Computed example of a mutant assay.
Amino acid sequence: MWRKDRCDLPHNGPAFAAAAVVCVGVVLSYIPQAMRIRLSRSSVGLSPWFLFLGATSSACAMFNVIVLQWPIVRCCATLSGLSCLEHMMGILQVSLQWLMFTIIFVLFLMYYVVDNSPLCRARRARRPQGAAHETDRLNPPAEADDGQESSASESDLEEIHSHFNQSYGAVSPDVDIRPHETHAERDHTTYSNIPRAMRRILEVYYLPGEQEEITGKAGTVQEWHLGVTLAWITAGFWVFCAVLTMALLAMHAHHRYIRHWARFLGITGTVLAVLQYLPQIVHTARARLVRSLSIPTMMLQVPGMVLFVYALASREGPDWTSLLAYIAAGTLQAILLVLCLCWRVRQARLHIDDYGRPL
């Protein structure tokens, strides 16, 4: 039996193999979510509170395990490299969990789209009623003082359209313009009799272009500012925990105080993990859309959490305070996964994509 005053740590092959699989799985499971944000170039749909609580709870869990396994870290000076790595796998897997979740938070800030331009609001106003209903939640109406500006922009677009119809008789508001067509293809198939200079005006002010592609992927300025504020709070919380943890360990504080700090981190991480998925569940339930959430990521992580908890429990040092946060997070993530699957079925029935845009 392993004792804190000795470094003759027992070898546990199955536990080491499980921890190695978990470490690889943690990284792979977050790749679909990161790629979804990167390829769609939008992170709208992820709740800032969900990311904040997840980043802070995973940080608490990481420092909890570091404190509880610190005697093993000190033993690495007398162990071989492979043996040290084997007994450090608990710290490695919770650190990877924290790192990957933090990366998703960073991607959220990098790819959050805000578009409140009058032109985009006018385009949304001209959309079919069904499509507008799905995007209203993502693009709230402008404030009362913007009403005249939006109406004026829409009126201008109608005047432009009327002018082209009267002059060239080539443009119809119901014309079927395929999104995958290039501007050059549209020149020949839709309005080939319009002079080139006029075509450019029409492309900018009437036809769907790059700006139209973000419709449905745009969020609010308020949510963006909230995300930035919570990111700074997360960074400050991480620095505080890191400094205090390292100070207690470096000063060889009384064992009782270190255990109290570890228990505080574990309980705090559990509370934050329980609260973590509640904002995201509410956020997704109100939107009735999957949006930027990755279903493959959740399908990998929900069953993988069982193996994660087993691998962590088999390490020397971690106790129930280390495990409870991940058990709570895995349970609530399963609820979020079921909700997203239900919305995906609904989207297929309504023929809309994950952002509420007509297919």
Rank of each mutant, 00 (worst) to 15 (best):
W2G: 02
P10F: 12
A19Y: 15
V22F: 09
C23W: 14
G25E: 04
Y30R: 08
I31R: 07
P32C: 09
Q33E: 00
T56C: 09
C60P: 02
A61S: 10
N64L: 03
L68A: 06
S83E: 12
L85Q: 04
M88E: 07
M89K: 11
S95Y: 10
Q97L: 02
M100D: 01
F101P: 00
I103R: 05
F108S: 05
Y111K: 10
L119A: 14
C120H: 10
C120Y: 03
R124K: 12
A125D: 03
R126T: 14
Q129H: 03
G130L: 12
A131I: 10
A132S: 07
A132K: 10
H133P: 00
H133Q: 08
T135E: 01
T135H: 03
P140K: 08
A144M: 06
S153D: 08
H163V: 02
A170Y: 13
V175K: 00
I177H: 09
I177N: 08
T182Y: 05
H183T: 13
E185K: 15
T189W: 04
P195G: 04
A197K: 15
R199H: 10
R199S: 10
G209D: 09
E213D: 15
T215V: 10
Q222R: 13
Q222N: 06
H225L: 05
L226W: 02
G227H: 00
V228G: 02
A231K: 07
I233S: 06
I233Q: 07
T234H: 05
G236Q: 00
A247Q: 05
M251Y: 10
M251H: 12
G266R: 11
G266D: 03
T268W: 07
V271E: 03
V271L: 14
V271S: 08
V274E: 04
L275E: 03
Q276T: 07
P279G: 07
V282D: 05
V282M: 13
S292C: 07
S292Y: 02
L300W: 11
V302K: 13
G304V: 11
G304E: 07
V306L: 14
L307T: 06
E316G: 01
S322F: 07
S322R: 11
A334F: 15
L339Q: 14
R346Y: 10
Q347F: 02
L350H: 09
D353T: 09
D354F: 15
Y355M: 09
Y355P: 00
